[in-house]
Design a protein around this nucleic acid. Structure first.
Lengths: 140, 140
DNA sequence: GTGTTATAATTGTATTATGCAACTACTTGA
DNA sequence: TCAAGTAGTTGCATAATACAATTATAACAC
């Protein structure tokens, strides 16, 4: 096993975070902030979800998940429906506005990725997604 | 071009950031904090560097670079030598301690990556590094 | 039924990393 | 010589996050 391979991944990951952080802060992105994106995406994919589940799935502290959920609600992106089984809990669901803005931001992001990966063979794009997924799976 | 490929990269990147952030905050890492790592690495690779150069290279605001440099100096990881050509500027160089702790942290990180990519063929490790590099190059 | 423990969510508090703005002091160019 | 440019620092504010504490409901044991 070539140590250089790991070293390269190490460096490139560190740089990736830095670069993405820099982008995030450059305020060129639409309304939706980054932390909200993952939440909206999760809610979108699961239709209806409680705060605890969100927090667990996204490895956030419940307090953070709770705050982000509240922010989304405040923006009109999600609404709450009480959990009939548990008086303490509720489910978050996307509003129409939430869905719209989510898609808009998603398109924005994916357009960016398309630009960044311009000239890449589809094979590389597929492989990148795959390896990222694999890496994420290993991150537990 | 399969839209699904971009979508997958999009999701996996978002998750990656989230997961890595979660790790960062879990306080399982050694002394060196993450933001410092990139600085130390850059200084290590270039032996001697000014704040402006650091900031530019790492896409940080100079104020951030300046602060991080100051923190590193405070920790005894770097020292300053005046730039003979410019009375306003100085170069940052690694101390022995800086070098040691940098390597220790580097080993820690790379051990983690090794674990995460356990079972991966070398080919995949190489490809991952390569594609990350390529993606980073596109991020301008 | 009662009391204890567990748990969902919220609020308080603090930390980290970052960027924009303002400033100081040195350098460069007209 | 003076104005504009620039290296670096400090002030101020924001975003994202986690640990701690709290409140209210649910589950479990007796």
């Amino acid at each position: 096993m070539e140590p250089h391979l790991i070293e390269s991944i190490d460096l490139e990951l560190a740089l990736l975070i830095r670069h993405l952080t820099s982008l995030k802060t450059s305020r060129t992105s639409p309304n939706l902030d980054r932390s909200a994106y993952l939440l909206l995406q999760y809610i979108h994919n699961h239709e209806s979800v409680g705060v605890k589940t969100l927090a667990d799935a996204l490895r956030l502290d419940v307090s953070t998940a709770s705050r982000q959920a509240a922010a989304l609600e405040q923006k009109g992106y999600v609404f709450r429906t009480p959990d009939p089984q548990d008086g303490r809990a509720y489910f978050l669901k996307l509003t129409d506005l939430g869905r719209e803005d989510f898609f808009a931001y998603k398109v924005f992001r994916q357009t960016r990725i398309l630009e960044i990966t311009e000239g890449w063979p589809d094979e590389d794009r597929a492989k990148f997604g795959e390896l990222l997924h694999k890496f994420n799976q290993g991150l537990r």
